[in-house]
Design a protein around this nucleic acid. Structure first.
Length: 531
RNA sequence: GACCAGGUAGCUCAGUCGGUAGAGCAGCGGCCUUUUAAGCCGCGGGUCCUGGGUUCGAGUCCCAGCCUGGUCACCA
């Protein structure tokens, strides 16, 4: 932007070392030690400790890949015969070993680690002094020959005055070089430290990115169009959850952060886009635990003239594809609270009916009211006899069935009363054409044959709101209101369709074997800290 | 929201029965041209989460609070 170097910043708050007087001075504070070095680099070595543009750098992995055994051996045999490949690279200093007139350091970038050797003879005294002054955490560029050491470790041997240059001084001492950053609170609050201190963390987020890219590619290949629909919604529809509330000042009305994009995506089917998807954040103002973060990433897709079976095909094909291409296998380990288990993503995924699973895991049919009430008592479900039958069945179902659904399972054919946005089966009016996908006891996905009859939809909305009269608190009523415009859209006419939602964070957890959703979200929600 | 565990040096962690606060790494000074968690010698570094209380004396015991993790509950 500007060729002239910036003026030196104001001096540190406490007096830096005077370079002239080499009075030994105990490091009272590591940041102060580093600030003193910063001052020396500027005053004594006349360099900008915050670097500038550098072209032609390659990654540490690419540098390592240049290694050539023959030229390395030849150069070791005879220094005059040095045809080793040359590279310029950059990284953060993770280890720094000074041995008199030779320094080894380990650099790290997003592609891995690489050892750099800086010898006084090869780079000259000024550069060597700077290399000696480096701290763990500093970012440097290095250039020279790609060779190896006596023990065979591939090493970039810095050459010439520019063989090693400081690109950015780090003023904050990094975590323990061996144990990394362990404190869970610090890991989440200072993710930028966690990422370079713990290579597995970086790898997980790189995988997350590839998974999301893989999903986009998969859907683009099938002619789905990616769209973006409102996150600020006047009515929080499409799911049942407590929304975050906000306010538009200029227009002076309350808005909700969306709990789902569903009702907007279906409007696009009405408008004439036959295949749409959206990958974006939903917000739900509820509890936080290993599988819930208040903001989370959801894939929703809609396919005109599809149904929930078409959605099963897409879901299992897509997840199988991601497991094999990005996870690297059809069988992937997953650590849950019950220990590590192998999850098989082999096709096809199991399909099991909701009511059959109920009977399988409870030993009686969900229609048996008497046994159901007894079971509810055993599970200490409050006011069981006052609950709607289907709601009570679902409460018991969640308690008794979910945890057993370890291998990928499509639970199909839900009670219609629980599915206000779903088309019911033509020959079974009590059953909705819906599935939920469970893996390792977690709900991964949810799909329906979409309800496109505006009169039935209007009736379902009305019934939902009726159910809130009486017991529901008034706060809840403020965000539970029927989306009349959505009904208007259905009146215009929405083609029959299938729709699918997949929780991306949970999918990433499974494919990267992370036990907490916080380990797959870069900056999970935390209470404000003291810093 | 309930219960359990934790919060000690920059980081990772010890700290016994209540009796002057410890180690490794990191840092500072010194030696060292094939180390690799380099090594050796020397040195400095603490709001023991916060606030009360008990006690001659509290990192340690008691009470309250804050933050984190876990389990459960809440979440159609």
């Amino acid at each position: 932007m500007n060729d002239t170097p910036p003026p030196p910043p104001p001096p540190p708050t406490s007096p830096p070392n005077n370079p002239a007087s080499n009075a030994p001075q105990g490091g009272l504070d590591q940041e102060q030690d580093r600030r003193a070095k910063l001052a020396r680099l500027r005053d004594e070595f006349q360099i900008d400790p915050y670097g500038q543009r550098v072209d032609g750098l390659i990654t540490l992995a690419a540098t390592r890949a240049l290694y050539d055994q023959a030229s390395d051996a030849a150069a070791k045999e005879n220094a005059e015969n040095d045809h080793r490949p040359v590279a310029a690279t950059a990284g953060r200093v993770m280890l720094h070993r000074v041995m008199g007139n030779l320094i080894f350091m380990t650099l790290r970038d997003a592609t891995g680690d690489l050892q750099i050797a800086v010898s006084k003879k090869a780079v000259g005294t000024p550069t060597f002094k700077i290399a000696k002054l480096l701290d763990l955490g500093d970012i440097v560029t290095a250039s020279g020959a790609v060779g190896s050491t006596k023990t065979g470790e591939i090493t970039l041997w810095a050459r010439e005055e520019n063989g090693l240059r400081l690109a950015c001084k780090s003023l904050a001492p990094p975590p323990d070089k061996f144990h990394g950053l362990q404190d869970a609170e610090l890991r989440y609050r200072k993710r930028y430290v966690d990422m370079f201190a713990n290579p597995d963390v970086l790898a997980t987020f790189q995988m997350r990115s590839r998974i999301v890219a893989g999903i986009r590619q998969f859907l683009n290949d099938r002619d789905f169009l990616e769209v973006e629909t409102p996150m600020l919604q006047p009515i929080a529809g499409g799911a049942a959850a407590r929304p975050f509330v906000t306010h538009h000042n200029a227009l002076d009305f309350d808005l909700f952060l969306r709990i789902a994009p569903e009702l907007y995506l279906k409007r696009l089917l009405v408008g004439g886009l036959p295949r749409v998807f959206e990958i974006n954040r939903n917000f739900r103002n509820e509890g936080i635990d290993r599988s819930h973060n208040p903001e989370f990433t959801m894939l929703e897709l809609y396919q005109a003239f599809g149904d929930y079976h078409a959605m099963m095909d897409i879901a299992e094909t897509m997840i199988h594809h991601l497991a094999t291409t990005i996870g690297g296998s059809e069988q992937l380990p997953f650590v849950s609270s019950d220990g590590e288990r192998e999850i098989s993503y082999a096709l096809p995924f199991r399909r099991a009916k909701y009511h059959d699973l109920f009977a399988e895991h409870n030993g009686f049919a969900s229609t048996d009211r008497e046994k159901l009430l007894a079971k509810a008592k055993e599970l200490r479900i409050e006011n069981a006899d006052k609950l709607d039958h289907d709601v009570l069945v679902n409460d018991v179902w969640e308690e008794t069935v979910e945890a057993h659904l370890v291998q990928p399972t499509f639970v199909i054919d839900y009670p219609a009363s629980l599915c206000p946005l779903t088309k019911i089966k033509a020959d079974e009016p009590a059953i909705a054409e819906r599935f939920e996908l469970f893996i390792s006891g977690m709900e991964l996905g949810n799909a329906y044959t979409e309800l496109n009859d505006p009169d039935v939809q209007a009736a379902n909305f009305a019934q939902q709101l009726d159910g809130l009269d009486g017991e529901a608190d008034t706060e809840e009523q403020t965000f539970r209101s029927a989306d009349h415009d959505f009904v208007e859209a259905l009146k215009v006419g929405m083609p029959p369709a299938g729709g699918l939602g997949v929780g991306i964070d949970r999918l990433v957890m499974l494919l990267t074997n992370q036990r907490s959703i916080r380990d797959v979200i870069l900056f999970p929600l935390m209470r404000p800290g003291n810093g």
